[in-house]
Design a binder for these strands. Structure first.
Lengths: 193, 193
DNA sequence: CTGCCTTGTGGCAGTGACTGCCTATACTTG
DNA sequence: CAAGTATAGGCAGTCACTGCCACAAGGCAG
């Protein structure tokens, strides 16, 4: 990787770190981009060039940069839930404590701040639709694929939200796993307790 | 209802109508609130007082003003999907052509404009969570309720989006109905075609 | 009908997110 | 090491959105 690219990534991490510190301390709305830029020792213009919007300072995740594994396609048609479960399990298992801590900080800010949550929801749907567009045509059911992808994003967002509001007590995969199981079996009639 | 309230509602309809006209003609981003206010013959300050944000000019729906039917609670535990299907069927059936036309205009703008879509997603989730909070405790499964509500919103948003991109050819309930059926039976393994 | 009172409306000034444009600087390549 | 090229910084401008205050319009006694 280029020296330029490495410097840019390092700067993005420094800027995001500074932003999270300030947002946690003073609240998202009370912090101006100028303050973030000053704390990270870059110009405000650079913050916008790198992140585009203020919300992206929280939403941005380096892992999102990598393209979806082409392997996904072959699993997608027959057993989409199983494929997604495996992907999430692997992703969470590969994280060290530092990465997990970063995710917790970001998730807490996302669900505490409506403006960030809105941007995050759109971001999630757009990413998922991109995956669906790459994988979907093989299924031959555009409508079903679209509804599935949207329901899936909704379920995962709900799971992450619950993880956040439960104080991050249990590992995140627990919640995602349970949410996927619910999605797998459907929400038909349930016996009254 | 008060004269003041009737005047306010009339003004809101006039403002929304003017806004939709301008947004369709010039694009959401190219239209300033000032232009909407001028077209509707009110002050910009009043537009903000009524709608809060620019996106709400498109998202706002008079039907949202009414509180959720208390009847919902008794159906919710045993057969949530059936209850929701019935609610949607009744809601769409009660609409005349003018209301349907208004919804089509709003939906088209929502899915054509990322900023509006983001606000709309958050709005939908917040409304649904409010319903879940009113209905959920009876179910005894907070996590399941939360995941269900999120997946449900996702599925409906996906259905409406598909309705929009299919050119509004078929009645909207068709899509919602199919999406609910998918959600009901789950997204488990499907036979490859 | 009329004058008071409450509530809602309009205008003003200010903050801050975001963008286009130009210059300066740091990396890259021959 | 010099020429070329991508990229950071600075500047000025637009526009969404907000608090504040003066004013006008419904609502309500008398």
């Amino acid at each position: 990787m280029d020296l330029k690219h490495r410097k840019k990534l390092a700067a993005m991490h420094r800027i995001q770190e500074a932003a999270l510190d300030l947002f946690e301390e003073q609240g998202f709305d009370a912090v101006a981009i100028e303050a973030v830029a000053a704390a990270a020792e870059v110009s405000p213009r650079t913050v916008y060039r790198y992140f585009g919007t203020k919300e992206m300072l929280v939403i941005w995740d380096e892992a999102d940069e990598f393209p979806v594994s082409p392997l996904a396609a072959e699993f997608a048609v027959a057993d989409p839930i199983g494929m997604l479960r495996g992907t999430f399990r692997a992703a969470f298992a590969a994280m060290d404590e530092a990465q997990l801590r970063l995710i917790r900080r970001r998730v807490a800010l996302i669900y505490r701040t409506p403006a960030i949550e809105a941007a995050y929801l759109l971001h999630s749907y757009e990413k998922s639709r991109a995956i669906a567009a790459a994988v979907g045509p093989a299924s031959g059911d555009a409508f079903g694929t679209e509804v599935f992808v949207h329901a899936f994003v909704g379920a995962v967002v709900g799971a992450m939200r619950h993880w956040c509001h439960s104080g991050f007590a249990t590992p995140p995969f627990t919640f995602v796993d349970q949410a996927l199981t619910l999605l797998e079996h459907g929400f038909g009639k349930r016996a009254a307790p």
